[in-house]
Write a protein that binds this DNA or RNA. Structure first.
Lengths: 131, 131
DNA sequence: TAACTTTTAGTAAGTACTTACAGAAAGGTA
DNA sequence: TACCTTTCTGTAAGTACTTACTAAAAGTTA
């Protein structure tokens, strides 16, 4: 059983460099948490549509508080997914956009969100079925 | 501004049937929460690899408690993504697998998780860069 | 009879996520 | 001077998520 974990085409070092979401201590877990967080998903999808200012995002994403939006943006910025551009004017003017890395995750996240939106009727029907 | 929300090719009723994750009260938000929950992602990816018993999942998914695994499986079962098959024996024998709907979400979630695993080195490098 | 098996419920306790609200910054407007 | 603007940051308070632990069911094995 134990050595089944090593596949033929992957060396041990290759596995270590890759990240393993099933391992509790793997740093990929944190990244996954940020990306799939309640507001992270929506921020990524929104920014896929282009650069947004803070308040644009706040308006677009129904239900976010300023506090949570700010925190989520910081997470995504630290992971290298979001680029924050601040103009030194008063009142503040800050723009958020996706980095190339951010666009890649964004596309995956959007694919998931879109699927759920499209299949919502089927899902709701399934929920009724076994209720 | 207000009427820009209606696109030419989509009637109002079509929009309502589709679900909109940006709307705070849309039921798709709940589904999204279950699918992207801390353990939901991992359960879906694990089950994509085939039917698993409860304790198999617990072993495979590093860090889950029995309590959370059970709750997550119930969420996904109610949304129609997971099929629970219970054999009336003692001690209990229960098998979990994906429904056709579950396989569809599973693939999207797996695409996201795989991307993060593969790009982890790049992400960690990006984190270092602005730290 | 005591102990072990597997899956899940229930409880209390702890941690993390979220919200609501007040405040700061510095220039333009009334 | 009083107030408005935008983007945040603290603070306190509330809610939700997680864990650890106890317990049940009913046969099989020691």
């Amino acid at each position: 059983m134990a050595n089944q974990e090593l596949r033929q085409d992957e060396s041990l070092s290759a596995l270590m460099e890759r990240g393993n979401v099933f391992a509790a201590q793997c740093p990929s877990r944190e990244v996954l948490k940020h990306v799939t967080s309640r507001w992270g998903v929506l921020v990524l999808v929104a920014l896929l549509g282009g650069t947004h200012r803070f308040s644009d995002l706040r308006r677009k994403i129904g239900g976010v508080s300023e506090r949570m939006l700010a925190q989520t943006l910081q997470w995504l910025e630290q992971d290298g997914f979001v680029l924050r551009t601040s103009y030194p004017v008063v009142p503040p003017h800050v723009e958020y956009s996706l980095t190339p890395l951010g666009q890649e995750v964004g596309l995956r996240v959007e694919a998931l969100a879109d699927w759920i939106q499209e299949k919502l009727p089927n899902i709701l029907a399934a929920q009724q079925a076994d209720a």
